[in-house]
Nucleic acid binder design. Structure first.
Lengths: 327, 327
DNA sequence: TTGTACGCGTTATCAC
DNA sequence: GTGATAACGCGTACAA
């Protein structure tokens, strides 16, 4: 494994000169620089990030913790974030918590251990205060996305309570009276039931508690949905996540139901919903990615500013996209 | 940022003792060990991976390069791989090449630079021989998944030529005579046209070159599909990837076409295909993940064995799942 | 413009 | 059982 020492040796220059040439920093004559670059290339030299980060204390890496790799919506956001951060010369380190608080803690430890310059995550609970504090003490900016579990930490949320309100209103307009809400059983996620209840009350429809159902977001709930349909006889269903929506339609399929009988609205506006002409609550992915990256970059830049600003809490509204399932 | 030094200081022990306690290695009295662990916890100490890797030369990390974050199929594989590797105490570092050879090279450099213990990737070209060689020289096992661009490097492929054969046969059985094949314009990917042509020739159907179309896998081709449908009047379409399948159905939607007129088969058996009752060529994701992780782990284990085994080339067959679009 | 020398945080070797 | 100390590869004052 050739090191910078080998490169220096091969060129009869000092390590310092080689380093300056390789890092494009400080003075070094054009002649030697070329020689060094060429030698590095020929030797197959690759800088050791570990040594570099250890030395400089900066990794030029941003850590992202995603709760559910099975939810395509996150992939879309991550894709944009990678592109955005690359513009600022930041790499991205992606970890998955699988909606598990302990795994999330491990992820935090790993990111901190790797000296990341910032951490973006969707909290699964508020049980990792310890790691949050460590990050903050190290002046590593932390940003919560999509959920807000720590009041003193920056957050960027989509107002899904409002989304649920929009969805419920729309179904009511379509004539639905018994609307089943399938929402994520996750702490600190935007409160969909709240918007749902508000919409109902505005239409003077009494709230049936049985119609508000919470489930873990990373598990298949086809069986549960079928049972609920049988027991509660809903005339409309709001699926709070893409995967829940998939399960709803699978349940329909297995029961031979159609969307004529039970209207469906699904969150997240993924491609396949368009294919099926499904009304959806759209999260503006572009917006989210851009703003999240901007916030992160600026927090890194002002890292050493004192005193730190108070935590920023941004909330944007989703949008209702009405479609009509053909046939 | 508390280091091991701070922990040692707080406990009045040497750095060496603290290290032994923290790493659970070597001798240290139970009493001191407890004290050290407690102090580390209280101080918020987290080991610095960079320093550790620098010192030991081992990162306990496996690097994975995915070509297309927009193809959900890869996410499924990655999910399984993370779980599998965790069993062996390996972390996973995921990078995306976006089907770009140069980015892939950057990714390789980053992984090598991070001292990963193995690299799993889906090659986008054979232009990164340089990095392959560097990896091999460093005795970092490399595994190609899904495509094989380097003969002397282990590979694990799905026989998509056979998949295309199965799909074509099935459409022929359904009475299709003009079958449009939408395949990925990627070097070294399994040769779908080959299976397609073989199936046609077995049925004595002449091959129309215009019906074999290659596109970049990470771009929307709705427009192109619409054009092809108009110009070539196919009675069946085989979409070689999930995204191509989505685009096909979007094109149908925009043109007001149904699958009664043009039969569709899509590769990859993603969830939404089940929702739409679409016949598919299924890649056995569980199988792939398990085998890929097994191969990788064993290659790491035998890293220093001499001489190295010859490159392994494994190919598994996909499966045809027949469904009937309802209505 | 170039080179010497130090230290980043860690683990491992060796004496004690 | 424990504690100095060297070394991993690198960047950078500082001296030349």
């Amino acid at each position: 494994m050739p090191t910078i020492k080998d490169v220096a040796l091969a060129c009869n220059v000092s390590i310092a000169t080689a380093s300056r040439a390789l890092c494009n920093t400080g003075y070094v004559s054009a002649e030697k620089k070329n020689m060094i670059l060429k030698a590095a290339d020929e030797l197959g030299y690759i800088v050791d990030t570990n040594a570099k980060t250890l030395k400089t204390g900066v990794s030029k890496t941003i850590g992202i913790i995603i709760p559910d790799i099975g939810n395509f919506w996150y992939s879309l956001v991550v894709k944009n974030l990678i592109v955005e951060f690359k513009k600022y010369d930041y790499k991205v380190l992606i970890l998955y918590s699988f909606e598990d608080s302990e795994t999330e803690g491990d992820n935090f430890a790993q990111l901190l251990s790797n000296n990341v310059d910032a951490i973006i995550f969707t909290p699964t609970s508020n049980k990792n205060r310890r790691f949050i504090n460590i990050a903050l003490k190290r002046k590593v900016p932390v940003l919560q996305v999509y959920r807000c579990a720590y009041e003193d930490v920056d957050s960027f949320e989509v107002n899904d309570a409002y989304g649920a309100y929009l969805a419920t209103k729309e179904l009511m307009q379509e004539g639905c009276k018994r609307i089943l809400l399938l929402s994520a059983k996750v702490d600190f996620t935007p409160d969909r039931p709240k918007g749902y209840i508000q919409a109902l009350s505005e239409g003077d429809i009494p709230v049936d508690e049985n119609l508000i159902q919470l489930f873990r977001p990373d598990q298949s709930i086809i069986f549960e949905i079928k049972k609920l349909i049988n027991e509660c006889q809903p005339d409309g269903i709001i699926a709070g996540t893409g995967p829940f929506g998939q399960d709803t339609l699978s349940a329909f399929q297995e029961m031979g139901l159609s969307q004529d009988k039970i209207k469906v609205i699904i969150f997240d506006n993924l491609d396949w919903m368009k294919l099926l002409n499904i009304t959806t609550i759209a999260q503006p992915i572009e917006d989210i990615s851009t703003q999240v990256s901007k916030i992160t970059i600026s927090r890194i830049a002002e890292k050493n500013k004192l005193p730190a600003d108070k935590a920023l809490h941004i909330k944007i509204n989703p949008e209702l996209i009405i479609r009509h399932p053909g046939k």
